[in-house]
Amino acid sequence: MPLTPLDIHNKEFGRRLRGYDEDEVNEFLDQIIKDYEAMIRDNKDLQNQIVGLQERLGHFANIEETLSKTIIVAQEAADEVKSNAKKEAQLIVKEAEKNADRIINESLSKSRKYALEVEELKKQAAIYRARFRTLVETQLDLLTQDGWEKLEPPESRSRDNEPRVREIVE
């Protein structure tokens, strides 16, 4: 068991002949007591500081652990957000590709339809031109015939030519 300042203070030394000077020994012991008490106080202060520092260290260790967990959670959340964004981007691209394919197919279909309509209109125009040419040629033939000098009044004209003219016009 360690000595206390009281133990040093109460220590009695035996007396002998030709021993040490009692006042010097008492002064030295008083000095030791003062120094020993100061060391004990310093030791207690240091122990209190150690306890305080250990508490702070524990607090900072908790903060560090919390921060580590927070960083891990944040990293996981960031990874999840990144993954979700990638999936969403892929879905958007697929949807855009589908829309593009649909638009292209619709455009091709309309293009084919318009091409068929153009061809039909060309055929109808050719038929119309042929009929019109025939009509004009028939009219020219009529104009070039000799009988114009002898024009008859409309009532005396034969009704036989009317169906032929209508046929040509149609």
Rank of each mutant, 00 (worst) to 15 (best):
E106H: 00
E119V: 15
V169G: 00
E119Q: 12
L135V: 12
R129M: 05
I168S: 02
I72Y: 02
T134N: 15
E117M: 12
H9Q: 14
R131C: 06
A126T: 13
E155R: 11
V93T: 10
N62V: 02
I104G: 00
D101I: 02
F60T: 10
E170C: 05
I103E: 12
E27C: 00
K11N: 09
L140K: 11
K122P: 00
E22M: 04
T144K: 06
I92Q: 03
V118P: 11
L91P: 09
E117F: 03
K11W: 04
N161L: 10
Y36R: 00
R164M: 04
W148E: 08
A77E: 15
A126S: 09
T134A: 09
F132E: 11
A100C: 13
F60K: 11
R159F: 03
F132D: 12
L91W: 04
Y20C: 12
H59T: 14
E65D: 14
V165T: 00
Y20G: 02
S156G: 02
Q90D: 10
E76I: 08
K94A: 01
E37I: 03
L17F: 07
V51R: 13
S83M: 08
D23M: 07
V165S: 01
S83K: 14
Q75M: 04
D23Y: 01
E117K: 10
E117C: 08
E55M: 07
E119H: 14
A115C: 07
N105W: 05
E120Q: 10
D30T: 06
W148A: 07
K69M: 08
E137Y: 05
A96P: 01
N105S: 05
V118H: 05
Q90Y: 08
E80Q: 13
A61S: 08
R159D: 13
V25M: 11
K94W: 10
T4D: 05
E27P: 12
L91Y: 04
P2Y: 07
R56F: 02
F132K: 13
R18M: 05
K98H: 12
L108H: 00
E162F: 06
R166P: 15
N26D: 09
E137G: 01
K122D: 02
A77V: 11
R133L: 13
L143I: 06
A38W: 05
A100N: 15
E37M: 01
R131G: 13
